[in-house]
Amino acid sequence: MTKELIATLFSGLVLGSLYALMSMGLALVWGGLRVLNLAQGTLYMLGAYAAVVAGRNGMPPAIGLLLAFLVIGVLGGLLYAGPVRVVAARQDHENAVILLTFGLATLGEYAALAVFGPQPQSVQTLVDGQFTVGGVAFTWNSIMMILATVVLLTLLGAAMKWTRFGLASRALAQQPDGAQLVGINRHRTSMLIFAISSGLAGVGGVLLSSYYFVTPYIGQNYLLLALIVTILGGLGSMTGTLYAAFLVGLIQSVSSLYLGTRWSLPILFAVIIVVLIVRPAGLTGRATQERL
């Protein structure tokens, strides 16, 4: 029993790190630009396909990871520089941008369907082998996924705290007009935020592809989970998102163990409804201006 529980908790951690990578992108873009990017799930899915393509051409997985970060990051940057920027400049942009990114997300899904076909595809694991502690098997691949997430998010956190770009985006998050007045290039910073969050989603997709099958529809499922995570963590709060991602991963795996996989989503949904009613600003619960 304890063995099962340990294995479950471990898989909860793995799931949590996947969700963290993806929802961090959502939180970053919302915090910095006040834009909800529903195309994030599709970018995630495209990242997974980048790994599939890299694997087919015999490239080592590490190159695939880098490739996905760059390609999906550039794609995200273009997404901002093209349609999102036009619509986000409008007065009543909040709903229009959400609808726009939703449309783009579905278009991306159809594009992947047209290019790669609907059949599930698998990718080789990034790292082979496993080791056993106390009768519980841990694969190196999962360990690597958690490590990669920790490293990437630490880098991101350090960049937000100590670099000029981080300073600029935090200023943008607090007061866009004020940030422009002190000479911050709003559009370049926004584009960079968009590119980085998309790149993170792409890397998340690669990590995912070593864990699950890849189909054009996986973006939707992970978008849903990322949405749940962002609601729990409070929109635009990076630390809240991090806690919430691991919490969601653990709730999901523990409820699957005791109640069956069918119940994990309804339970999560009940949790977010309760959280929204009790603490409308999310778990870490600050509705103030301080973000990112």
Binding site: E94, L224, I231, F269, I272, P280
Partner: peptide, 29 residues
């Protein structure tokens, strides 16, 4: 009742989550 007191974006998030929830629950039944 759960979401309409909140900001507009939360409405989008929760309704989308509700949509996905129904899909998953019914599709897996």
């Amino acid at each position: 009742v759960a979401v309409l007191r909140l900001r507009g974006v939360y409405v989008a998030l929760v309704t989308l989550a509700f949509h996905e929830l129904l899909t998953t629950v019914i599709g897996g039944d």
